[in-house]
Design a protein around this nucleic acid. Structure first.
Lengths: 325, 325
DNA sequence: ATCATTTATGCAACCGATTGCAGTGTCAAT
DNA sequence: ATTGACACTGCAATCGGTTGCATAAATGAT
């Protein structure tokens, strides 16, 4: 691989000049810059990132850690992070923690020595651990609220309230909330919102929490939902909602005629039958914003604390209808 | 951040010794190794990857480039690549090319200076471009067959033949194949297999190819499928199959009673109604194998050509039934 | 013509590790 | 006591860039 010295020799300048031709061309005469770049192109020179990182301390890499790539909430977010980072000339390390806090911690440690910062969607990692890591590198959190760090939060509470009103308006008075893991910030927000909203509306609410929010868990929770005598349910996410939807249908409980279901995240679009009424989460935007926030952190090391709320909205499709009389 | 010099001072040894304590402990006395590691732990020393890469030429990173993270075929593969790499102490850069060959090329160039090798699922990038890149770094291809490189191929042809036999056995004589992008190796394999199999079985086959294999494309192709007078269809992947399934159902054509559908990849599991009969693709295994192959490339630079076929199987669920009479 | 500025480039130290080679100390054999 | 072998550790060069400072050349002011 050609190095800076090779280019320098061929162009008849010093290594310093070659370096500046790329990083600070305004310091050089146009003529020199042109010649250096020409030579560099010719022999296919590409600056060695490791060498550059060694002297500047900047790696040009960021790490994104998520609990489960296969959860359809994440791919659009990952895509957005990657795309925005790419625009900014940054490369993205991806880590999948498989919902395991120890693994989250290990991944952070592994990436640490070669990234400028982190975007973390780590619901399970302890706050202390995160804060410890944040002393070494800027961290942007997604859907987790730790003071002193940058946070991108999806305000699903508002969406949940809209969902409750929608159900109430349709005549539902016994509503179930099929929540996700208790440690998750999103779960805490939604659970609280659902309870408050129920008491405001004068509806009865039954809440469950699933240790892991999956299709299978939603599927398996149908018993409990039926036992609760609710006529409608709000699920932690679309996967859970879909599991429930399919199992209820299977049992001869037609949705939405006999039972209404609302999902969360709008991760499936109109792909279920009936199409799922859901609370949209701006995963793409959250991904973009997280990179923006991280770049701001990098540029102004003083400003490492920020909090951005992203809006959600209730999307009406076909899985909700008037309560059975 | 503590450096090797800090550890050396505190432990009362030279930098060389500290370095060896981590990379070649057998060269040192046990006592020394113990003391160095103790000190290192104490002050939280972590070797600077950039510095190490600079002197060894090894980065400990690999890059994985896929055309679309959001396509459910990829997350399990990505997960497997990441997990296997992690086990081996490697970090994974992820690139999403959005099905754009120019972007694939750019991503490869961006990652090149800091990775030891690539795993590419790039159906659209030109063969010449790939070969050019392969001169700089080992490349493992997924579902693409270029001689001289390492290839992990999913043998969907066999699965497709099994699917054709299955349909034929159910009495279907007019079958449609709803294919994917023509450039894709998988599409070429499947298209050929479907045609050969049809002629062997004495069935008539109508093939289409979608420029982009998506739910929407499957949805939109219902017209063409109905027009073909086929009684069954095999789709390029589960997404396309699901789109078709939903649109047919919508139009009052019940699946599987009036029309049978078979998907490919088994990316959705039993999540559709009726559950989709599909040809499984071992995406997880392909991911694992690709990392294995890459590591073999790294260890034995001479052996850079290999070809591994992964088996597929027909998974019978509920979207196929006897042909309507 | 002289001196002060400005502009363009080079010199050389530095980033933090690795590694070939040399040096020191220990021990056993002669 | 001398020598050789061996085990352990240090010296110093090196990887490929970046950057503060010095220098040389060009320009402008007097």
């Amino acid at each position: 691989m050609p190095t800076i010295a090779g280019v320098a020799d061929l162009a008849g300048v010093s290594r310093a000049t070659v370096s500046r031709a790329f990083t600070r061309p305004e310091m050089l005469s146009e003529e020199t810059v042109r010649r250096v770049k020409e030579v560099a192109d010719e022999i296919g020179y590409r600056p060695n990132r490791a060498a550059r990182a060694l002297s500047t301390g900047q790696h040009g890499n960021i790490a994104l850690i998520v609990p489960d790539i296969a959860n359809p909430f994440f791919p659009p977010l990952i895509r957005a992070v990657q795309a925005r980072a790419d625009e900014a000339g940054l490369s993205v390390f991806l880590g999948d923690s498989d919902e395991d806090p120890a693994r989250e911690d290990r991944l952070i440690g592994r990436f640490m020595p070669q990234v400028d910062g982190f975007v973390l969607a780590c619901p399970r990692l302890s706050q202390a651990a995160i804060q410890a890591h944040a002393r070494h590198r800027p961290i942007v959190l997604i859907n987790r609220d730790i003071a002193g760090l940058s946070r991108i939060l999806i305000d699903s509470a508002r969406g949940v309230v809209a969902a409750m009103r929608h159900l109430h308006g349709l005549g539902h008075r016994r509503i179930a909330y099929l929540g996700g893991p208790d440690v998750s910030w999103a779960q805490q927000q939604r659970d609280l919102a659902v309870r408050q909203s129920a008491s405001e509306l004068g509806a009865s609410i039954e809440t469950l929490s699933l240790p892991r929010a999956t299709f299978e868990a939603g599927f398996a929770s149908a018993d409990a939902i039926v036992a609760s005598q609710a006529t409608a349910a709000i699920a932690f996410d679309d996967l859970v909602a879909e599991g429930l939807l399919i199992q209820l249908t299977e049992r001869g409980i037609p949705v939405p005629d006999a039972f209404s279901i609302i999902g969360c995240d709008d991760a499936l679009g109109p792909r279920t039958r009936p199409a799922l009424t859901t609370i949209s989460s701006p995963a793409r935007e959250a991904g973009l914003e997280s990179v923006e926030a991280l770049m701001e952190n990098l540029q102004y090391p003083a400003r490492r604390s920020s909090r951005r709320m992203m809006e959600t909205a209730l999307i009406l499709r076909g899985s909700t209808a008037a309560a059975p009389s």
